[in-house]
Simulated assay, not measured.
Amino acid sequence: MTSHQTTQTMKPATAAKKLGVYLEATPAEFQEGVVSRNELSALQTDPPEWLVELRRNGPHPRPVVAAKLGISISGLARGGVTDALTTEQIDALKQESPDWLTRERTTQAEVRKETVRIKEKNAARTDQPRQPRP
Rank of each mutant, 00 (worst) to 15 (best):
K11Y: 09
G20L: 11
V52M: 13
G58K: 05
L76G: 06
L76A: 07
R103A: 05
K18C: 01
G70V: 06
W50E: 01
R133L: 15
E104C: 02
H4C: 03
A25H: 09
I71S: 08
E96N: 05
R125M: 08
Y22V: 05
T6V: 13
R112S: 04
T7V: 06
P47F: 10
S74P: 03
P132M: 06
S72Y: 09
E114G: 01
V34K: 02
E53G: 06
A66W: 10
I73S: 15
L93M: 05
A16H: 07
P27Q: 14
G70F: 02
K94G: 01
S72N: 10
T126S: 15
L51P: 07
A28R: 15
E120H: 12
P134N: 10
I118P: 01
Q131N: 12
P129A: 08
G58T: 04
D83E: 08
K11D: 08
E114L: 13
K17G: 06
R133N: 15
K17P: 00
L51H: 07
T102Q: 04
V81S: 05
W50P: 00
V52R: 14
Q8T: 10
E49R: 14
R112P: 06
K11T: 14
P134R: 13
Q8R: 11
Q44C: 08
V52I: 15
K94V: 05
T86Y: 04
G80T: 07
E32S: 10
A77H: 13
E49A: 15
